[in-house]
Nucleic acid binder design. Structure first.
Length: 550
DNA sequence: ATAGGGTTAG
């Protein structure tokens, strides 16, 4: 390694050349550890020689990318301490690293230290801060940074860096992603008033998406009209955002109409457009139309990608058309795509639900040949299939395979077994698994697990045991939901334990568990039969009884 | 900086 005390005195060039080599590998091809490079920087630094801004930034970036942002922090501080010239790009690299770790405390600290050390942050610095805050939905803090950067607050912590279009777009997107699109509109007006911050297609796309996601399709469409009027050209993302928004809010026909209208105007769709539409038609049980759109793609010179294939395979599987689904999988492979784990899982689940175990095994074999490892969901699907069919031996065997495959059974794995044992009336086995998972196996049961058991216990007239499970939930901090109470109330109705039912109704109110139509079905008959309609009336008061069919 | 699929237990 180069030493500061070699014949010629070290200078910036020496350290840069040394680092340039060492960041990758040294002359002999030996890989050099990060610590050696850090040591080098430190050694040179003590002689007053520092890497260039570019080299230092490269080192910081590398450290952050390999999860060593703590060391990156040390390096920056060391260079500062030794009097080296640290500039914004190096700090930005560290900020980005800290941002990926959601370490906002340190990000703020770094910003403060930049100010202390006279390092002028740039627009990128604030871009990183705002971007990461928005990504983790901390939009109010992002807005604070935004106000601080331009020094609008007239306080001494302003930085007088002017925001640009990208920063505005980031903020608007952040606001829209948390449902604050109205506030996003406010920023749109603000940026129009500023120099060099003209709204772009992306600005409108973010806003349109915000209104689409909140179901305000009309407002979204108004924005679309507005951007056209202002001469901001819509692009395929604008098109897709609106098409998807319409599809997701039950307006498939409007979506098709809009798509056709745009195509007529020369704005072509792409695979994303077709995914939205195919997905919508599958969900609306219109497989024919979905297939038709799929076939139209090649004519429109828009070849399907893996997601389009997945969407179709998933839709066909859900419609029970397994033959068609595996045919599409074949076409997909012929087109040069590989099925991913989700596609395999969908197909395996589909074959299991059709009781076609041979085909399911064939898929397993195929995925092994394709080098796609089964994951927890694959195993859970199989465990669920075998348990549901009463083959508990095989179910347990598959679970052991799962474990030897270094996968951890989850609450869903145990849930499948518990549910199946309950269905065949083997409550003892179910309770045994429940106790195992919560004690030794360290898989905390959730509401679903408790609901399966409470329901089964009540159906088997073991109401007292079910009640004790509800106490257990309380102890463990697992929140009951409407289904829990429904199961319990049904059990209480069977044995006509009225006082306990009243108690539970009060608890429902306390837990803000809205009664649904099942609750009402149980209570209406029962309470009117025993002349307690008044109690029922006061119970439903203040609730919107949901008409769900779940 | 902006658009699409998210599969397993009640």
């Amino acid at each position: 390694m180069l030493k500061p005390d070699s014949e010629s005195p070290p200078n910036e060039i020496t350290v840069n050349i040394a680092m340039a080599g060492l960041l990758w590998r040294d002359r002999t091809g030996r890989s050099v550890s990060d610590e050696e490079i850090i040591g080098l920087v430190s050694k040179f630094g003590e002689c007053g020689v520092f890497p260039s801004v570019v080299r230092l930034t490269q080192l910081i970036t590398k450290l952050c990318r390999t999860g060593k942002s703590d060391r990156a922090w040390d390096v920056i501080h060391n260079v500062m301490k030794l009097g080296g010239d640290v500039q914004a790009p190096s700090c930005n690299a560290l900020l980005a690293g800290l941002g990926r770790q959601q370490n906002f405390q340190k990000m703020n600290k770094l910003l403060a230290e930049m100010k202390e050390n006279g390092i002028q942050p740039d627009i990128i610095t604030f871009g990183i801060l705002v971007n990461h805050l928005c990504k983790f939905r901390r939009v109010d803090e992002a807005l604070e940074v935004f106000e601080k950067m331009s020094g609008e607050r007239e306080s001494d912590d302003g930085f007088s860096v002017k925001p640009d279009t990208i920063l505005y777009n980031t903020l608007i997107d952040g606001l829209c992603k948390v449902g604050r699109q109205e506030q996003g509109l406010g920023l749109l007006e603000k940026m129009k008033l500023e120099q060099g911050c003209a709204p772009t297609t992306a600005t409108y796309n973010c806003l349109i998406d915000g209104f689409c996601k909140s179901g305000e399709i009309g407002r979204a469409h108004e924005l679309f009209d507005q951007m056209n009027k202002e001469g901001v050209p819509p692009n395929v993302i604008t098109l897709n955002t609106l098409v998807d928004g319409m599809c997701k809010h039950g307006r498939i026909n409007s979506a098709m109409e809009f798509f056709n209208e745009m195509q007529g105007k020369g704005l072509k769709g792409n695979a994303v457009t077709y995914t939205a539409l195919i997905n919508a038609f599958c969900n609306a049980n219109n497989i024919d139309k979905a297939m038709q759109l799929f076939n139209e793609m090649s004519k429109a010179e828009c070849s399907p990608d893996a997601i389009v294939y997945y969407t179709l395979i998933s839709g066909l599987t859900q419609a029970g058309k397994l033959d068609d689904a595996s045919f599409v999988a074949t076409v997909m492979k012929k087109a040069g795509f590989c099925l991913d784990i989700m596609s395999y899982n969908i197909l395996i689940g589909g074959f299991c639900s059709k009781n076609k175990l041979d085909e399911a095994y064939e898929m397993l074999k195929e995925m092994e040949q394709a080098g796609v490892k089964p994951d927890g969901i694959t195993y859970n699907t199989l465990i669920s299939y075998f348990s549901e069919n009463g083959d508990f031996m095989t179910a347990h065997r598959v679970m052991r395979e799962m474990i030897s495959d270094r996968l951890v059974p989850t609450v869903v794995t145990y849930g499948a077994l518990i549910h199946a044992y309950c269905l065949v009336g083997k409550l003892d086995e179910a309770m045994k698994i429940f106790r195992d998972m919560s004690s030794g196996l360290r898989v905390p049961p959730n509401t679903v697990i408790y609901n399966i058991l409470v329901d089964a216990l009540c159906k088997n007239r073991k109401v007292e045991v079910a009640l004790s499970l509800m106490d257990d939930m309380k102890d463990k901090g697992v929140r009951p939901n409407t289904n829990t109470f429904n199961a319990m109330l049904k059990g209480l109705k069977e044995i006509n334990w009225l006082e306990k039912a009243f108690e539970l109704m009060d608890q429902m109110t306390e837990h803000a568990c809205n009664p649904d139509y099942i609750t009402m079905e149980i209570l209406t008959d029962w309470l009117s039969a025993v002349g307690e309609t008044e109690k029922l009336r006061s119970f439903v008061q203040g609730y919107e009884v949901s008409a769900s069919t779940a």
